[in-house]
Write a protein that binds this DNA or RNA. Structure first.
Lengths: 110, 110
DNA sequence: AACAAAGTTGATTTATATGGAAACTTTTGA
DNA sequence: TCAAAAGTTTCCATATAAATCAACTTTGTT
């Protein structure tokens, strides 16, 4: 997957990603970054659920959905809506913070 | 809207919300909190766009949508998907951070 | 091994987010 | 003041997220 040039001593993760996945802004790279974030989101749901010692079925019951739906949110993670995210983490009694940074300015979309 | 009891000297915003909108967890209160967050999200898009000195039409062009769609995202804000949020703020060259807090543990869904 | 509990997957339905087109309203600047 | 630019709204189509159900696989536990 990586290391094309034998003379190269070090390579940052970002350099590797630039090379193997294309620069930021290209469709492939954007897709990769998006998929990664969605995967992390799914993993986070799972981690927090485990922390609360809940099964998918139990979490589902709290929200009012089947366990299969929870499974999909944890694994199958494509795109999700903000509402779904908030619903899940509220049931898990976790706080969701949402922040937009632009240059020096920060917007807290708490 | 508020101040039912004349003897009451002080009331926190949370107490007021509890009284006027119902406790956290009730459907009305959840709806209110959700609507508020979505409104803030819309306002944030608008603020950042203004900061960048872009019209809705120009921002739309960057993303590949009509100005009416930007208007809807800024005002009409109901629910949105994560993909849409990322797309918009990426076009605005703003960073979106997304964090889940549970007790002392923090999950960065960067 | 073998049974139950937990989790996953696929097919399908329903609800709704995304988006365009066009007419409309508001804002702004000459 | 009025014309153009910017923003809004309505009606509509399409794509897809949310959800169920049922069958399946995986993971413990005794």
């Amino acid at each position: 997957m990586a290391a094309k040039n034998r003379k190269m001593k070090m390579m940052t993760l970002d350099q590797m990603k630039d090379q193997d996945l294309g620069k930021v802004g290209t469709p492939e790279r954007d897709t990769y970054e998006f998929d990664l974030r969605m995967e992390i989101l799914g993993d986070t749901i799972k981690s927090v659920r485990k922390e609360r010692n809940l099964t998918q079925e139990e979490l589902g019951k709290l929200i009012g959905v089947q366990k299969s739906q929870i499974s999909k949110l944890e694994r199958n993670t494509k795109n999700v809506t903000v509402e779904t995210i908030l619903k899940v983490f509220q049931a898990l009694e976790a706080n969701v913070r949402f922040r937009v940074e632009m240059n020096d300015v920060e917007f807290e979309v708490a």
